[in-house]
Design a protein around this nucleic acid. Structure first.
Length: 634
RNA sequence: GCCACUGUAGCUCAGCAGGUAGAGCAGCUCACUCGUAAUGAGCAGGCCAGCGGUUCGAAUCCGCUCAGUGGCUCCA
């Protein structure tokens, strides 16, 4: 029999019978590998295990427990779900069914309004399909053939028409056929652990003008254990929901009558803001920023000049008329900063100017997008604008990145995804400046040693930008930091500086927000820490708990002493049991409880209970010192 | 804005198929003065999101509005 040689990723060669498949290759390496195999990479192409190998091919087996293997399982599970839905509800029109981070979805167009109550029936059908163990069979057909196959599937026909190749691949399992690039797992029986999660509307192809389909989200894993773990993570995310914790910890409310998307900060939430604001302001001043302040409303003409009235109006609140002149609530802080810049003639010697403001802006967000603190209509940006020369951009960006890394680290975030968005098709400003700015952004990212992903053409019309999404304790990512170069506003407002040549030059403006907005950042912070903030951030840092009334005076004395070193401390003077007071402080996630009774009064001690539990009595002075150290973590 | 679902006391939720509202926690009062996650008893608290309709009668059925939830689109 004729033989072929296949090269493994480590360079080793394996001899196989001619006509062997990737599946055979896995088997020849070992039965366990063959069992875990879901697909293969042959000469850098991800393919089915049924793919026939040729002499000299470089092949890697993709197994079910690594990321790309799980992805393939999820993709196949999406197909199985589509098959189940089609069986249960004949006439269903199929949209698309891709994998996403953590799972998959499939879009359907059907008469029945799907609800979570339908999930068990769909899951049962899926289990049946899995146990019938249909092989996934790949076929390459011409587009004409495909159109015949999918003649009753208008969405598939649309996709086929847009495919540029002459042929398309289709996959079938049992009676079900779907248009698909592949690869797929060998057979439906490989799917062992899946769960349908939610159902939602989604526009066909994500376009508002197209029909709305019904999307079922689900997830799948290689093993039941991994699925269980993932479901635990989802439950943990629910427990950490900042909307729930915000209420429980008495931080903020969003009141129906007051207005949607307009959070009201309670005393504990407001002190949390103050801690962040103070830290933020101090750090900015240290780093050469100056603080400025601008009002919440301005004449509508200002926004005509800035261009927002033309391009951003749908996000702005309607104007209000004052003595015959229209004013609007600001959706951005930039024009105010520019006006301050223009209050003097500026010299090149003044640049760079770094002006920071915790500026509260209001944007009209469509009702359906509001979400707790993460998406609101009134929010405080930790904004700053840097006016500089083109040559200064790279250095300025670098210092912004440095500040960002510093601040995020202080707040406990050390994982982020960085995106560089480059020049879009429609843009303003000189090509030369775009190139210069884009290179400056790249240069700064490289010098900061940050890995980043380029989003080609995704920049704003007025300049390239860097976006940073932070990852929280559960691995979810949130857009916070944004650094945007702007060639547009300096032009529109005719912003200039006098250069060494005694001529007017156009400065470049950098918009940047590190935390993004206080609201969103606090929302993320709450979820990241599950409400159990580090000492320096905690709204209440210490609660003193007298055991009986006769200890009240000493408890107040302890609290006063701690206030002297800047502690946010409260005395629980209620006539409740110690257990009750401890429980209440614990529920509020207060980092330190100091229990004081006869012994402590006598010895000038406090019995410390922190998040690790009861630590016994120590001298008040010793605790004060410890507290000061804990505060220094910031 | 779009699709689906939801809206009962401050919070978490009962209230089945229409007959005029209930629990726990929180709050208040009283007693207890307590050593590391809820002391006990009592009291008070709701135009059942709002408006309109069907009905002898609506928290319950229908419509609209508002708000929330999960997504889509859009974004800090």
């Amino acid at each position: 029999m004729e033989k072929i040689n296949v090269v493994l990723p480590d360079g080793a060669k394996i001899e196989l019978d001619a006509g062997s498949t990737a599946y055979d290759l896995a088997g020849s390496i070992g039965p366990r590998l063959q069992k875990a195999a879901v697909a293969a990479v042959v000469n850098d192409n991800l393919v089915d295990l049924s793919t026939k190998l040729n002499n000299g091919d470089v092949a890697t087996i993709v197994v079910d427990h690594n990321e790309s293997g799980v992805d393939i399982i999820r993709h196949s599970t999406a197909h199985i779900m589509a098959q189940a839905v089609t069986r249960l509800y004949p006439g269903t029109k199929l949209g698309i069914g891709p994998t996403i981070e953590g799972g998959f979805y499939y879009d359907f167009d059907l008469k029945r309004r799907l609800s979570a109550e339908d999930f068990s029936a769909i899951e049962e059908e899926m289990k049946k399909i899995a146990s019938d163990n249909y092989p996934f069979e790949r076929k390459v057909v011409t587009k004409e053939e495909a159109k015949k196959i999918f003649k009753d599937q208008p969405y598939k026909l649309e996709l086929i028409n847009e495919i540029e190749d002459e042929t398309v691949s289709i996959y079938s399992q049992g009676e079900f056929i779907d248009l698909c690039r592949g690869p797929q797992i060998p057979s439906t029986g490989k799917v062992k652990a899946f769960k349908l999660l939610s159902v939602a509307g989604a526009y066909w192809r994500g376009e508002e003008t197209r029909p709305m389909l019904q999307r079922i989200y689900g997830t799948a894993f290689a093993s039941k254990e991994a699925l269980k773990e993932h479901i635990e993570t989802l439950a943990e995310a629910e427990r950490r929901d900042h909307r729930k914790l915000g209420r429980e910890l008495d931080l903020f409310t969003i009141d129906d009558e007051f207005g949607a998307g307009l959070p009201l900060w309670h005393p504990k939430g407001a002190i949390l803001r103050k801690v962040i604001e103070d830290f933020w302001k101090n750090e900015h001043i240290k780093r050469g920023y100056e603080l400025i302040a601008t009002p919440h409303i301005a004449k509508v003409d200002l926004w005509r000049t800035s261009g927002h009235w033309d391009f951003y109006r749908e996000s702005m609140f309607s104007p209000m008329e004052v003595e015959g002149t229209d004013y609007v609530v600001k959706p951005m802080n930039c024009p105010g900063h520019i006006k301050i810049y223009k209050s003097h003639t500026r010299s090149y010697r003044d640049l760079p100017l770094r002006w920071a403001e915790l500026g509260t802006v209001y944007r009209f967000e469509r009702s359906g997008v509001l979400h707790g603190l993460l998406r609101v209509r009134g929010f405080t940006q930790d904004d700053a604008h840097i006016f500089c020369t083109p040559d200064q951009i790279e250095g300025e960006i670098l210092s912004v990145i440095d500040l960002m890394l510093f601040m995020l680290k202080k707040f406990g975030f050390d994982k982020y995804d960085v995106y560089l968005s480059t020049q879009p098709d429609k843009f303003v400003g000189a090509q030369e400046n775009w190139d210069k700015a884009t290179n400056a952004l790249k240069g700064a990212l490289d010098r900061a040693g940050l890995k980043y992903e380029v989003d080609p053409g995704e920049g704003v019309f007025y300049g390239p930008k860097i976006d940073v999404k932070i990852r929280d304790a559960l691995g979810r990512s949130w857009q916070c930091t944004t650094i945007q170069v702007d060639f547009n506003l300096p032009e529109r407002f005719d912003v200039t500086y006098i250069g060494p040549d005694n001529k007017e030059h156009r400065p470049i403006m950098v918009h940047r927000a590190i935390l993004g907005s206080l609201e969103r950042f606090i929302g993320v912070l709450i979820e990241n820490y599950a409400g159990a903030f580090p000492v320096w951030i905690s709204p209440e840092q210490i609660v003193v708990l007298p055991i009986a009334d006769r200890h009240n005076d000493y408890a107040v004395f302890v609290a006063d002493k701690l206030k002297e070193v800047g502690a946010r401390v409260r005395v629980d003077l209620r006539t409740e049991s110690v257990n009750k007071k401890i429980r209440d402080a614990q529920v509020m996630k207060v980092p330190y409880m100091l229990v004081v009774g006869d012994k402590e009064v006598e010895n000038k001690q406090v019995a410390v209970r922190d998040r690790s539990g009861d630590r016994g009595a120590i001298a008040l002075d010793a605790f004060t010192d410890e507290f000061k150290v804990a505060m220094r973590i910031m």
